[in-house]
Structure formats: C-alpha cells, structure tokens
Amino acid sequence: MKTAFTDGRVFVGDGTILERATVFVEDGKIMGISGSDAVISEDTHQIPLGDATLFPGFIDTHIHIVMDAGPDPIGSIVGQSDVMTTLKGAQNAEKTLAAGVTTVRDLGGHHGVDLELKKAIESGLIKGPRILASARLICMTGGHGWPIGREADGPDQVRLAAREQIKAGADQVKFMATGGVLTPGVDPGSPQLGYEEMKAGIEEAHKVGKKTATHAMGSQGIMAALRAGIDSIEHGIYLTDEIISFMVENKVFLIPTIAALHHIEEMGTTGGIPAWAVDKSLVVAPHHRASIKKAHKAGVAIAMGTDAGTPFNLHGLNLMEIPLLAAHGLSPMEALMAATSVASQVVGMENQIGTIEPGKLADLVMVKGNPMENIDILYNADAVSLVMKGGKIVKA
C-alpha cells in the first residue's frame, strides 16, 4: 500500500526541519520527500500532517521490557512466574509502541522472556517495538542486578557468560561495571566487574559483531569499562574530566537515563520504594545532573534511554526523557536527535532507522504541535497521534 504524509512539518532527524513537505511510503520503506507541490497518485492513501510534526520512529536505547515499574521491580520479577512476566512484558511492549517508540534496546531480561517477546513481535503475534535484546546482564557474584543476572567472576567466567548470551540470541551484551541503586547492599559508586573481566567479555561480543553496554555509575568502574572497549556508558553518575575526554576521543556514547532517578526522587518512600534505594538515589542525583551537563558541554554523544521498568518509570511514558534531556542542558533539537539519529547509531542501525530518508524503514510518528518550540509537549502521554512501524500504521 502507498501512503503519503502530506503538506506539513517534517523533522528529518539530522538537524533539518522541512516545512510543507510530503513524505512517501511504499512497501515498508520511505520512498521520497517532496515539497507542497508533490504529485500524489490516486491509489495513495493520504494523511494530512496539519499542525502536527512528523518524526522518525523514536528509539529508546535502555529499557527493561519485563520489569513492571513497581516500587521494587527486581524483587517483583524474581517473585513471579515466567508466564506472568511474559504477559506483563507483552503489555509493556504494546504501550511502548503506542508511545511512538518503534525500536528499543533491552538491557537485561529474565529467563529469556525478552528474547521470546522479540520473536513474538517479529512474527506479528503481538504488537511492540523492534527489540534488540541482551538476554541476561553479566555481573560479579552478588553484584548489582544479581537476582536477574548471570553471575561471573574472573575473565574466563565472564568470557563464558558473554558467549552464553550470544548463543541465546542476544543482540548486544551488557556488563555491570559498578554497584547501583536498585540492589540492596551495594554502593552505586563502587567498582564491580574489573578491566580484565570486561575486556574478556567485550572481546567475545566484538568478535561476532555485537555491541556492548555497561551499567556504570562510579568513576573507577566507568574508566575500567572504557579501557576495556565498551561501546556505551549507561547512567554515568560520576564522570571525571579524564572520563569525558576519553569518551569524546573514542566516540563512546552516554545514555544518562535521567527518568530513572527522577521518578525515584519524585515518588520516594511514600510510593513504596525501599528506603535504601531512595537514600542512594538522593545521594547520587546531584552528581548525575552535574555530569550530564559537563559531558554535553564537552561534546560527548548523548542518546535517549529511559531505564523504563524501574520504579514508576512507566513503559509508554518513554518520551518524557526528551524534555528531561533538554532540562539538563541539551537544546530541543539535540534532545530530539538523541532520541532519533544519535540513538540509531547506539543500536547500530543508522542505515535503517533514525532519520526520514529515502530507502530507510518507514518508522514514522506524528506528534501534535511543534516540540522544537515547546519540548514539554512530550511530557504528555497523548502527544503522539499516529505511529507507523515498517510501513504499517499501528496507532491512529
């Protein structure tokens, strides 16, 4: 079926805004972009853009599709059946797609449910975004995320753990370089997997063309991951000048996941979040804000990732990360590119998604109004009026 989004504002994704443009779609791909004088054949389904803005499908580079965004999501997932985890994950996937997020990078599943949800979406059995799954995150024994992770100690065990995830079908491999907020008894700033351990696991991923990511909050753990060859730093709470220079020079992405700490701070213990998690969040939050601003000023490539699934960080509200990025120093254009073209590079799909260009997949999203002039529109869950994924309209 031929479709044309006609005579309106188009956010190309490369820093360009087109006015009164028409975007043509056929056979699941973007076929071309024309001006207001475009000639449209009679067999083409026309969708007037009006006052809406057309975006490339948004990309969330850090979610947990099987986590339910409850007060203690890791504890909840460990205490429920795989059937319930799968049902919740399917619901989360549908909400994410309806929010205009057409591609996600899942950075830690449970019992292979993330891998099976990916297959179910690809087969058309359920609705959801394109999922790049990590299978089980790799951590040290008793380290951050251990209840849902693959514990491994020493380079040989980490190498084996990475091979296991790749064998299971992981699209990328995730390592835990430091402690974190949502695991009791660990300090967010403390180093966990070391340089030699991560180097072994990263080598295995890179040998087969897989990208890597690391949960990394403390400076020592972040630097160890960078020297080991990691592709993206998730969270990045305590960034030093040395770390920032290394990231700029080696083109390592920062995924700050601002929404994760934002919701913990906002809801606190009154929302049922364990006191130990709230206390840790309040300690690290000021350092996080300062690190994001410093990294942005220095030219670190920043991409959108929400950590959706963490406490009160709901699937389907992913786009609020974009105005949060703008509130931390990015311009509206930079924040929107963080969720489109920059994010496409993080997931290694820049030749297929992330911008509105002929030949790319027809992942297209209509947003009410003009977020470049009012980025706070994206705090509203109803901001997205239409979603197309791979040429098929999945929300209208």
Rank of each mutant, 00 (worst) to 15 (best):
T3A: 09
A4H: 10
T6W: 07
V12G: 08
R20F: 05
A21I: 09
G28E: 02
I30G: 03
A38M: 12
A38L: 07
I40A: 08
I47N: 06
L54R: 10
F55N: 11
I63T: 05
I65L: 10
G70D: 09
G89V: 03
E94M: 14
T103H: 02
H111A: 15
V113I: 15
V113F: 02
L115N: 08
K119H: 11
A120F: 11
K127C: 00
A135K: 11
R136V: 06
R136Q: 11
W146M: 08
E151C: 06
L160R: 15
A162D: 11
D171F: 01
D171Y: 03
F175H: 08
F175W: 06
F175S: 05
A177G: 10
G180D: 11
T183C: 08
G189V: 05
P191Q: 11
Q192N: 09
E197G: 06
K199S: 15
A200G: 15
A200P: 13
A225Q: 03
L226Y: 05
A228C: 13
S245D: 02
A260G: 12
H262D: 15
G268S: 09
T269E: 13
W276Y: 15
W276F: 12
V283T: 10
K293R: 09
V300M: 12
L314A: 12
H315L: 09
N318F: 09
M320V: 10
P332W: 04
L336N: 09
L336C: 14
M337C: 12
V346N: 00
Q352T: 02
I353P: 07
P358T: 06
D363M: 00
L364A: 04
M366T: 12
N374W: 00
I375W: 03
N380T: 07
L386I: 05
G390W: 01
G390Q: 00
K392Q: 04
K392T: 03
